[in-house]
Nucleic acid binder design. Structure first.
Lengths: 182, 182
DNA sequence: CAACAATTGTTGTCGTCAACAACAATCTTC
DNA sequence: GAAGATTGTTGTTGACGACAACAATTGTTG
């Protein structure tokens, strides 16, 4: 979607927020969540409608998961996206950058930098394709294969942290619910 | 008129999860050349260990959810974080920036810019606190209250999209699983 | 009460990341 | 063989999380 992706940089100062259909609802329209006029008591701050939004919970969860991943794999300096790239290349040697990007939902422009970094660390190599001289066939180096094996062990440890956090069966249920997005 | 071409690009692949058996043998990988011609592998690229990582699925899902949120609330130019801030302020008038930041897991440095933007659009106002002259008491403006009501309606529509995508009961299960993170 | 520590909002920097746009080199196709 | 599409690349923009430093203010403690 090229149009409404995000910031319509024009409408900065005062956007036409006052569209039709806004029921003026005079008086107090707040507080469906119980507290009458809660002030800044830090004890119990209600989320109101936010509590019913899956996106909010998912965002908070993802931040936690990624932080744990980064911490758990901190010793080998591998971030989640790098791990995903290496894993896919390791399981499918010879893929083009376009194929990897499409499979992982990464911009191919972004994959360029990721591969630059991984290639610099001699974990991945770009081999010129003989059949299509535009594209590169991606492979793990020998060092990359050894390293990936260790990354996977650490990633499995991270996954155990996730299971401890939300419960073993909840984690599996989560994977099942979101299987369409992988 | 949007050239919407992004959202559901991944076909639902119900590929076997390669539970315990499929392990990339340390020897030669046989996929060496079978995919020089672009599309041959489009649906056949295995995720290997990635398929068992909740973080990966969650990342992909969150991208989808946020894109839908941004698109659904595109007409009012409200992003997920802005919505969360306004919702919490609306339900808890008078909160300090620190309290809002802590509750939502946002850096207070980042909240400054978010509030600058919302204040500029006259949706939120910073009121100097009488009891603590360091802090601001945050309130929705009259316009902000009206606008938030509309945002909530649009957000509810977005939430219906989520339910359509993953299923009504799956969405509720998801909210339940991740309730600790909200 | 006065030094000292902590908090609050703010500014700034850095790095990651998604989304686009433009480009050269290279297929593909008609 | 020219037009159009694809691949990798460079660059820009903006949202976002993580830090660091700072002034103003509050609180804490000797």
């Amino acid at each position: 979607m090229a149009r409404n992706s995000q910031a319509p940089r024009i409408a900065k100062s005062r956007v036409a927020k006052s569209r039709a259909g806004i029921r003026p609802r005079p008086g107090r329209a707040r507080n469906e969540n119980g507290n009458a006029h809660s002030d800044l008591t830090n004890g119990e701050i209600g989320l109101d409608a936010l509590a019913g939004h899956a996106g909010y919970a998912v965002r908070r969860f993802q931040i936690w998961v990624f932080q744990d991943f980064i911490r758990t794999l901190g010793a080998v300096d591998i971030r989640p996206t790098q791990y995903s790239v290496m894993t896919v290349i390791g399981a499918n040697p010879g893929l083009s950058q376009m194929a990897v990007a499409k499979r992982l939902g990464i911009e191919r422009a972004r994959l360029v930098h990721l591969l630059d970094s991984l290639e610099q660390r001699e974990l991945v190599s770009r081999v010129k394709s003989a059949t299509d001289r535009r594209s590169h066939a991606l492979h793990l180096t020998a060092r990359g294969r050894t390293a990936l094996a260790q990354f996977k062990r650490l990633a499995a440890e991270h996954e155990r942290h996730v299971a401890e956090k939300i419960g073993k069966e909840n984690r599996e249920k989560l994977l099942q619910i979101l299987s369409d997005f992988t």
